[in-house]
C-alpha cells in the first residue's frame, strides 16, 4: 500500500471527499514554494499535486503556464522539485505527493534515475500528461515496478471502448478531467461530472478525483458530492502569481478544503 492507497482508505472510512491542491514547484521561488507546501496539510490538503515546471505545457492554460515560467526563471529544475518533496517529508511523512508534469524532463534525467530519486525523495505517484496508455512501457510500467502509483487522466473523450485501456495500468486513483480543454478554462458542472465518475468507478473501482475547471469553494463542494476527490490548481496558482503571501494562499486553500470536506456531511 502506498501513502495514496492508505489516504483514500481513511477518507472512505470517514465518508469524506479528498481535497487535492495543485501548486507548481518553485513558484514563485524555492523558499516561498516550500513554505506553501509545508502549510498545505494543515490547510486541509489530503493529497498534494506538485507541478513539475516545463517550458511547453501543452495541456495547461495561462495560469499554470505562467506559474511554470516563474518557477523556471527562479531556477527550478526536476532535481529541485524532488528536493522540495524531500524537504516537505522532513515535516510531513503522511500526506501523499503526486508529481504532475510532462515527460521530457524525466526522459532527459533518465527514467531509472528519476524513479530511484523520486522514490527516495518521498514521491508517491506520477501524473504525466503526455504519456497515454499507448506509451506505457516508457514510464508507467517501470514506475509501477518501482512501487510508485501511475495516475492516469480519463477525459470526456475516453469512451467505453477506450476506458479499460486507460484504467489498465492505473493505480492510486483516476484523475477525471472534467472538461475537454486546458487547465483553468471552462467550469465543470456536477450534473455533467456525476455520471462520468460513476462510469469510471464501475470499472475497476479506483477512487476518482475530478479536476480542470474547478475554481471556487462552491464548485468544489458541488463536485465533492459526486466524486472521491476534488483537484484545484489554476485558482490557487493565480493567487501565487498575484503575489499573495503564503498565509493568504493557504487561507484560500483552507476555504476550498473546508467546502470539499463538508460536502458529504
Amino acid at each position: 500500500m502506498t501513502r495514496i492507497d492508505r489516504r483514500f482508505a481513511k477518507l472512505a472510512a470517514e465518508g469524506r471527499a479528498a481535497f487535492v491542491p495543485y501548486v507548481m514547484a518553485g513558484d514563485p521561488d524555492r523558499e516561498t514554494s516550500l513554505e506553501i507546501i509545508r502549510g498545505l496539510p494543515a490547510a486541509g490538503a489530503d493529497l498534494i499535486e506538485f507541478g513539475l515546471p516545463f517550458t511547453d505545457p501543452m495541456a495547461d492554460g495561462p495560469a499554470v503556464q505562467l506559474a511554470g515560467q516563474r518557477a523556471l526563471e527562479a531556477g527550478m529544475t526536476l532535481q529541485g522539485t524532488l528536493d522540495l518533496v524531500r524537504a516537505l517529508r522532513e515535516t510531513d511523512d503522511e500526506t501523499p505527493v503526486v508529481i504532475m508534469g510532462y515527460y521530457n524532463p524525466i526522459y532527459s534525467m533518465g527514467v531509472e534515475t528519476f524513479l530511484a530519486e523520486a522514490k527516495s525523495a518521498g514521491v508517491d505517484g506520477l501524473i504525466v500528461v503526455d504519456l497515454p496508455p499507448e506509451e506505457d512501457d516508457e514510464l508507467c510500467l517501470p514506475a509501477k515496478a518501482a512501487g510508485l502509483n501511475f495516475i492516469r487522466l480519463a477525459t470526456p473523450t475516453t469512451d467505453d471502448r477506450r476506458l479499460p485501456k486507460v484504467l489498465s495500468n492505473t493505480s492510486g486513483f483516476v484523475y477525471y478531467v472534467s472538461i475537454t480543454g486546458i487547465t483553468g478554462a471552462a467550469e465543470a458542472t456536477a450534473a455533467a461530472v456525476a455520471p462520468e465518475v460513476a462510469r469510471i468507478k464501475s470499472q475497476g473501482g479506483l477512487p476518482v478525483c475530478v479536476g480542470f475547471g474547478i475554481k471556487t469553494p462552491e464548485r468544489a463542494s458541488e463536485i465533492a458530492k459526486v466524486a472521491d476527490g476534488v483537484v484545484v490548481g489554476s485558482a490557487i496558482v493565480e493567487r501565487i502569481g498575484a503575489g499573495q503571501s503564503p498565509a493568504e494562499v493557504l487561507a484560500f486553500v483552507k476555504s476550498l478544503a473546508d467546502a470539499a470536506h463538508n460536502a458529504k456531511g
Binding site: M58, A59, Y103, V129, D130, L131, P132, P133, E134, E135, R152, L153, A154, T155, P156, T157, T158, D159, R162, V166, V177, T180
Partner: peptide, 20 residues
Amino acid sequence: ERGRFGIYGGRFVSETLMPL
C-alpha cells in the same frame, strides 16, 4: 504500428487527444 521510426516518433499526447 506504434508510429515509430526506430525509437523516434510515437504518440506522446494527452488522453483527450488520443481518440482523435
